[in-house]
Write a protein that binds this DNA or RNA. Structure first.
Lengths: 129, 129
DNA sequence: TATAGGGGTTCCTGTTACTGGAAGGTCAAT
DNA sequence: ATTGACCTTCCAGTAACAGGAACCCCTATA
């Protein structure tokens, strides 16, 4: 099948698929006219990549996960390790965002939001505390 | 003062300060030798930018916030608007991350993490559900 | 058979907010 | 005079694509 159908079935835009090939994550065949030809296994890999990306893994993580997926003598510990590290990063990001949220929502709550210039948000940004 | 001291006082690396000048967020003076010269108001602005960035505002938001800060006839509603929109984005990001966290931590909890190949994480990535 | 459309291809640019590094000028102290 | 710590500009790289230009290919229809 061609790139558009492969994309539709894997839930990825053609641009992304071409990019994945460029960075060596997939290797679709080529037709005599130069068109990429996708097999079922290619679509399967694309789906794998799409789901891994949706979970926030970097493409480099995806590369390793994909190679582990195809390595039948893998140790699940290696997979778990990558996933756990990623979970840690997710937690860190959530915390950082929650800190921002707490600070900012406090400032916003204190702001009248009318046509006068006085604004605790700007005051808060102008000086700590 | 020179860029290093300005950076130390505002909590920003010199590289970042040069970048802020390049994109027009600040306009420090120049000494005859070509060195940037920072006044108190410049350091003040840099501090403002640093705190806005720490709250996750984009540089474009920072640009607008800074101009509002200097506009004594501003309406606080304009500031609040920007902040509220940013809060909404923060909430959306937190939700997305929490979804990832929920899915991934479930998979991780199901993975033995030993030297055997069987791995629910990979299985989960290979097929939805 | 000419053409229109809807594919496909490569290549280049732009995105965000910097960071690292090279090549070279400046300044204060020894 | 030299050393070392500053400073300068400019270029490349980062992540993961998206948009668009210029061009090729294939099929169906008038």
């Amino acid at each position: 099948m061609n790139i558009k159908e492969a994309g539709a079935r894997a839930g990825l835009p053609p641009k992304t698929i071409r990019y994945y090939e460029e960075v060596g994550l997939i290797r679709p065949l080529r037709d005599t006219n130069g068109y990429r030809v996708f097999r079922e296994t290619d679509v399967h890999k694309l789906g794998f990549l799409g789901r891994a990306r949706a979970l926030g893994f970097t493409l480099e993580d995806c590369r390793v996960l994909l190679s582990l997926y195809e390595d039948k003598s893998r140790a699940s510990a290696d997979v778990k390790d990558i996933a756990q590290r990623h979970l840690d990063q997710i937690s860190a990001k959530i915390s950082a965002l929650q800190d921002m949220q707490a600070t900012l929502s406090h400032l916003v709550a204190c702001c009248a939001g009318d046509d006068r210039p006085d604004c605790p948000i700007l005051t808060g940004l102008a000086a700590p505390e």
